[in-house]
Design a protein around this nucleic acid. Structure first.
Lengths: 211, 211
DNA sequence: AGTTGTGAATCTGTTCACAGCC
DNA sequence: GGCTGTGAACAGATTCACAACT
């Protein structure tokens, strides 16, 4: 898979959504092929955008026929790097962290939380959902041993920046940031994705107030 | 607060982030004023963007001096509609739902989960974190009685579309969608915000694979 | 001197529209 | 006839750069 140019994060997120839709489509509807119109209908976008998003990576459809569902699923998994299996470190075993540890969305998927890190002596050394809980000080060692490159940060916002730095120093290259803090400029070869539920619910408040 | 034009959701999200940063700033640093540069530094954006974002709503700074921190906090809360108190219905008391029920980010904030809805007979009628759990069938009644306009949907993806429709029919006007499903075109006066952790972690997979 | 507020310029993302193929 | 793939046109968001103000 060769990428011609820098791809927008928006495109990537949509590909991810297409993939989820297609899997459902394959399972429920049992159809063998879809058009870009079908996909757009499924998720409320436009057909042109679906085709454009895919076109950055190649030509996967047949003119006049549409896309083979199974092939397109494989292609999207390939593009997104989901053909591999990613080991993930969860940092922070508070309430949100615990819910991530058992999050169904990550089951049967390419991501597996293989180690949990915290600093609470009561938690360190135990297991949660059959996954061992280490002290944050052991992050570098465990990540090296296990080959962990992705981490979910579910710590309190106050300590998030410190934790980001520790994670990057430990060789983590991708961070899913659930801490609510988002003020970190990662180095060139690392990536941080912010998921900020408080900001989202506040934007609902804005919409209901003004529109 | 009068709004001149349609504001981009991106701007709203940033305002939310500015607000969080400013609160921390006021608490930790104790400074009375900030420049757009300070704010930009805090969250990795540019000073011009901070000023532009604010300019959609008015002129809150003093040339040569910057912004008064306390005033700007109040202004942002005003813009975002956080001067009110929002009652929230949580739909779906699975693992993710339970973590939302006690989510610290919503504590001491303008959002309070006052009712939980599920369809599991074992859960209906009980309380979770001191909040009553109702059957989904009672959504309309309870939302009317309590004046609930915002809902967090934390159900499995398979039933999400059905739940969206039920919520909108019950008078819900803002939905924070954590279900992983995102294919719903809300009617003109309702708003759905998707938070999709699986898509985010998949985009990390993409970045690590290709960059 | 320092910093805002904002039109103009640039950059990025989306949609259009149609040639080309099935 | 139907649908893809894509350059060109358009729309939207960000950055620049500077006048105006303290």
């Amino acid at each position: 898979m060769v990428i011609k140019s820098k791809i927008s994060p928006l495109t990537i997120q949509r590909l991810s959504t297409y993939l989820r839709g297609l899997k459902y489509f394959a399972q429920e509807e049992g159809k063998a092929s879809v058009s870009s119109d079908d996909i757009a209908l499924w998720l409320g976008g436009t057909a042109a955008q679906v085709r454009k998003d895919l076109s950055y990576f190649g030509s996967f459809g047949k003119k006049g026929r549409g896309y083979n569902v199974d092939e397109l699923i494989k292609t999207l998994e390939d593009i997104l790097g989901l053909d591999k299996s990613w080991k993930v470190a969860l940092i922070g075993l508070g309430r949100l962290g615990r819910s991530m540890a058992v999050y169904k969305g990550f089951r049967n998927s390419s991501f597996e939380i293989v180690a949990i890190f915290d600093i609470d002596p009561q938690k360190v050394g135990t297991k949660y959902n059959e996954t061992p809980v280490y002290h944050l000080d052991d992050l570098t060692r465990v990540c090296e041993e296990e080959g962990i490159l992705i981490s979910i940060v579910a710590t309190p916002a106050e300590v998030a920046n410190k934790v980001f730095q520790i994670a990057l120093d430990a060789g983590i290259r991708g961070i899913l940031n659930l801490s609510g803090r988002s003020s970190f400029n990662p180095p060139p070869h690392a990536f941080i994705k912010d998921v900020n539920m408080e900001a989202e619910i506040e934007s609902l408040s804005f919409c209901l107030t003004h529109y």
